[in-house]
């Protein structure tokens, strides 16, 4: 598959942010962990990266659908 590597990249990105969330719950008393430091800017980064990942996944899916159509046509 041509786009396999980009898929893997995105999925690993999503998993990484999920693990970050688990780590947060484990040390609930500690309020100054990564996601809550620096004016919570990391939360903004997580949100933007999620949106970006969603948009790019959408593009990858479109790309594949069109590739399939092209194969069916010729």
């Amino acid at each position: 598959m041509r786009n396999k590597s980009s898929y893997i990249l995105l999925i690993s990105m999503a998993l990484l942010s999920a693990f970050n969330g688990f780590a947060q719950e484990a040390q609930a008393a500690e309020m100054a962990d990564t996601m809550r430091s620096n004016g919570k800017i990391y939360v903004v980064i997580a949100v933007i990266l999620t949106i970006l990942a969603g948009l790019i996944l959408y593009l990858v899916r479109l790309d594949r659908k069109i590739s399939k159509l092209e194969k069916g046509e010729s």
Binding site: R2, N3, S6, L9, M13, I45, L49, I56
Partner: peptide
């Protein structure tokens, strides 16, 4: 398709380094 992967990497780099 390498440039699509490059695009994703550069955009992630932009968002992370752009904010931090």
């Amino acid at each position: 398709q390498w440039w699509k992967i490059l695009c994703v990497i550069l955009l992630v780099y932009t968002v992370v380094l752009g904010l931090l």
